[in-house]
Amino acid sequence: MHNFDFVKPSTIAEAVSALSHEGAQALSGGQTLIPTMKQRLAAPGTLVSLTGIAEMQGVCLGDGGLHIGAATPHAVVAREAKAHYPALASLAAGIGDPAVRNRGTIGGSLANNDPAACYPSAVLASGATIVTNTRTIGADDYFQGMFTTALHDGEIITSVVFPIPEKAAYVKFDQPASRFALTGVFVAKYAGGVRVAVTGASQDGVFRWREAEAALTANFSPAAVSGLTVDSRHMIADLHGTPAYRANLVKVLTGRAVAAAS
């Protein structure tokens, strides 16, 4: 690891100011950034920690649904979202290992937008709103491909607002080595319709499976997706699965998520 400066602001304004300097990089839980720095693949001049900002912490009900501070660790979401949004809490409880869950944060995960991360599927399937220091961004506009988001340089996610569905479930199929999602499907049923978001499978990152959404909006049962086919053309090919295999998982896991939705 190269040397770097470290600042830990206590307000969003201080953080924004610190990030405006050249070479500054936001640090949340550090579960991706720190290993990358240790491998000398990243060498930011200044790390601006976002975990000391009180208004970016915590889980509470509010306008529009469940508000989760962006610097809230997964373990806290797993614990505190359980009563309000059990599928989301269950997703958080299944990320990584205890160390990752107690350091890694929802904002960090969403800013990074790893194509195999769990949280993006929940955000997209819930039609959640990403709140930043300057604006709000709808989930459908936020994810713009693998490791790519609508965030501008220096923009900080401060919270995420999840509309609470009638029913939802997340089913993840583990990549055997990393235990990231080889494919993960989040299904959420709202009064206005069903949303299905898939992570881990596509070269374009998290995506909505709209054919399944239409079928499930008409008939919320596993049988509704059993006749659908998933286009494998943009699926990821790697050591752990072919595009065809991932396409199969999308369908199988969607059916299982519908069956598990509560």
């Binding site: 055997p176 080595a177 990393s178």
Partner: peptide, 23 residues
């Protein structure tokens, strides 16, 4: 069931960490 050390056709190690080498 899990472990596999794999190189690509150019000799690059594809399973060079525990992220891809399944213990």
């Amino acid at each position: 069931m899990l472990e596999n050390c794999v190189f690509d056709e150019n000799g690059q190690l594809l399973s060079g960490s525990f992220m891809d080498y399944a213990m």
